[in-house]
C-alpha cells in the first residue's frame, strides 16, 4: 500500500520585484506517492524551478498547503527547515553546486558533517556512495578536475548520503551531453528502485520519457499529466 510523500493543495506563489508582483504558481494540486519517479515539464518560465524550490524548502510560498510526509511545511524557522532539508530531501542542481575547495569525497560527506558524524566515519560512508556512482578513483580530486558528468554524479552521491525520502533534481542533465544524461538517468532509476522518490525537472522529452509519470506545467497551473503508459489525463 502506497502513501503520499509530497502533497500540495492549492499552492500559490508570487515574486515581488519592486512594485511589480508576478504570480508564478496559481493554485497547484499535486500528490506524489512514496517511491514514485516523476518528471515535471513545461516551457521556460512556467514555474518548474519555483515549484521544486518550494518542495525542497529552499523557498517559501504564499497560499495553500504543502505536506512532506505527514508534516505541514509552512513558515518553518530556518533551524527546522535546515533539519528537514538534511534528513528528508536530497537536491541535485543543474549547475552541480559542489563546494570548490573540497574534494569529491568531502563534498559527498558534507551532509553528514551537519549531523555531527565523525570525520572518519562520514568519509568512509562517502566512499561507499562514490563507489555506487562509480567514482572511487576520483575521490580525492577537486570539482575543477572533474567532467560535468562526474560532477553531477558527485552531487547525486551527496544527495543520497543522508538516505533522503525524496530526491529533487532541477534539470540535472541540462549541462550534460546525451550519453552522459542517459547514464545519469540510469543512476536515478537505480536509486528509485531502492525506494527513494524522484522528482526531476526537465524540458527534454527523452529524459521525461524515462520516468513513470510526467506533469506538465503551463503558466503556473498543471496543464496535463500522464503516466508512462501514455494514458493522458488533463487537469
Amino acid at each position: 500500500m502506497s502513501q503520499s510523500i509530497i502533497r500540495v493543495n492549492q499552492l500559490h506563489k508570487s515574486y515581488i520585484t519592486g512594485s511589480n508582483s508576478l504570480h508564478v504558481l496559481k493554485g497547484l494540486d499535486i500528490d506524489i506517492q512514496q517511491g514514485e519517479m516523476v518528471s515535471i515539464m513545461g516551457s521556460s518560465g512556467s514555474g518548474k524551478s519555483t515549484l521544486l524550490n518550494i518542495l525542497g524548502i529552499l523557498d517559501n510560498y504564499d497560499k495553500g498547503e504543502f505536506y512532506l510526509g505527514d508534516t505541514l511545511i509552512k513558515d518553518l524557522n530556518e533551524k527546522k527547515a535546515a533539519w528537514y532539508r538534511n534528513k528528508m530531501i536530497g537536491f541535485v542542481f543543474q549547475s552541480f553546486n559542489l563546494i570548490t575547495f573540497k574534494n569529491a569525497m568531502e563534498n559527498v560527506a558534507l551532509p553528514l558533517y551537519y549531523q555531527k558524524v565523525s570525520r572518519k566515519k562520514r568519509n568512509r560512508i562517502a566512499m561507499e556512495y562514490l563507489e555506487k556512482v562509480g567514482l572511487t578513483e576520483w575521490a580525492h580530486h577537486l570539482p575543477s578536475e572533474l567532467s560535468g558528468g562526474q560532477k553531477q554524479r558527485v552531487a547525486i552521491a551527496r544527495a543520497l548520503i543522508n538516505n533522503p525520502k525524496v530526491i529533487l533534481a532541477d534539470e540535472p542533465t541540462g549541462a550534460l551531453d546525451t550519453q552522459t544524461s542517459y547514464e545519469v538517468m540510469e543512476l536515478f532509476h537505480e536509486i528509485n528502485r531502492s525506494g527513494i522518490t524522484m522528482i526531476i525537472v526537465t524540458h527534454e522529452n527523452d529524459i521525461a520519457e524515462k520516468t513513470e509519470r510526467i506533469i506538465h506545467l503551463k503558466d503556473g497551473v498543471i496543464e496535463k499529466e500522464y503516466k508512462q503508459n501514455h494514458s493522458i489525463r488533463y487537469a
Partner: peptide, 16 residues
C-alpha cells in the same frame, strides 16, 4: 554567498 546557500540546501543550520 553561493557556498553558504549550497550548504544550507544540504542541511547546514543557521548556527553552523
Amino acid at each position: 554567498t553561493v557556498e553558504f546557500g549550497i550548504k544550507r540546501a544540504i542541511g547546514a543550520s543557521p548556527r553552523k
